[in-house]
Design a protein around this nucleic acid. Sequence first.
DNA 1: CAGATGACCAAATTGTCCATATGGTCAATT
DNA 2: AATTGACCATATGGACAATTTGGTCATCTG
Lengths: 190, 190
Amino acid sequence: MASDRKRQIIEAAAQSFAAFGYKATTMEQIAKLANVGKGTIYTFFKSKEELLDEIVSGLIVEIKAEAELAMDSSLPFSENVHRALYRILEFRQRHQLTAKLLQEVRNIGTAAVQEVLAKLDRAMVEFIRQKIDAAVEKGEIRPCNSEITAFLMLKTYIALIVDWEKDHEPLTKEQIAELFTLYFLQGLSR
Amino acid sequence: MASDRKRQIIEAAAQSFAAFGYKATTMEQIAKLANVGKGTIYTFFKSKEELLDEIVSGLIVEIKAEAELAMDSSLPFSENVHRALYRILEFRQRHQLTAKLLQEVRNIGTAAVQEVLAKLDRAMVEFIRQKIDAAVEKGEIRPCNSEITAFLMLKTYIALIVDWEKDHEPLTKEQIAELFTLYFLQGLSR
DNA sequence: CAGATGACCAAATTGTCCATATGGTCAATT
DNA sequence: AATTGACCATATGGACAATTTGGTCATCTG
């Protein structure tokens, strides 16, 4: 069946990308892993790049579902946004494929990989933005430019989780939640 | 005179680093530009790396002075921190040398250049941290972990000025000040 | 003789082939 | 009609030569 073969190919490619990275994975390798001829891959995907793109698109859906699951509509907005962000970045760090791609983009600057990760970032910002808009609608928070807010929230989280560790002891999940609320949602001024 | 020669060398090196980058600048080039023998450079600096380090150290002093100048003790903390941060990043972007080094670290990953830019970052965070501590001392803002706060402030600024432009129209100075106050100092919750 | 210098060296970088590997195509096959 | 692997132009990587470069030091000079 056609869709079955397509799935096989996607799974083989995802597996290989995660294990060896995008560049180090050859189309022949994928074909062998998927038990299809190399040409077959090109009946489903225009190029290697498109194959990666489709896989990451699936990943985005997965991440959104994870984040959605982590949230709890009975909790206040601030708690939910923290949970969602934390889950998103945890996923991004833990997931073999994203971890490998993140590493690859640091070492080599493959254009395709860079583009696809940028797309992932945009999707995550968009996800948060929708949550913000919903919270504004419900009157949980005051109106604001939700795109910039979502963008800053993600950046702040990445700074706290990824960048801070470069020069300091890692912060715990609780510390991050506290800091995020303190600096971002509550503010310093008085 | 000895210190005169040293200054000549530093200026020649700074000029060449800014024009061609660290890697592309050779010691012979610097010597020629400074009108000294190549060996002379090594009577003042242990290595090319140390030469860069000394130049950047001078730059840090310059940046601090710039930031200090931009501040006004009669204004509230939030306004001053904004002015200082904006001036720091404006300087960093405009200054030929830092711009070139920033570009170089993106393209190649020269260890020396990376280290020296990290040092620059640390110095800027430390500068902000001292301003925060002073503001806490004066009771202008409530007590907080000044190191993390300074770190987050710089990251937030870089995100707004540098990262935001990658996908969107640049924000004006006023917009950035407003956003910074809104999200960072005032908070969203109510 | 103290400080400056440039010839000199080992190590790193760059340039040049060439053999191999790879993404993508397509005529043959099932 | 769908699948395939031989095939092709191009990209990549390894080996080796040539060049460059950071750093040293014996020599020079004022």
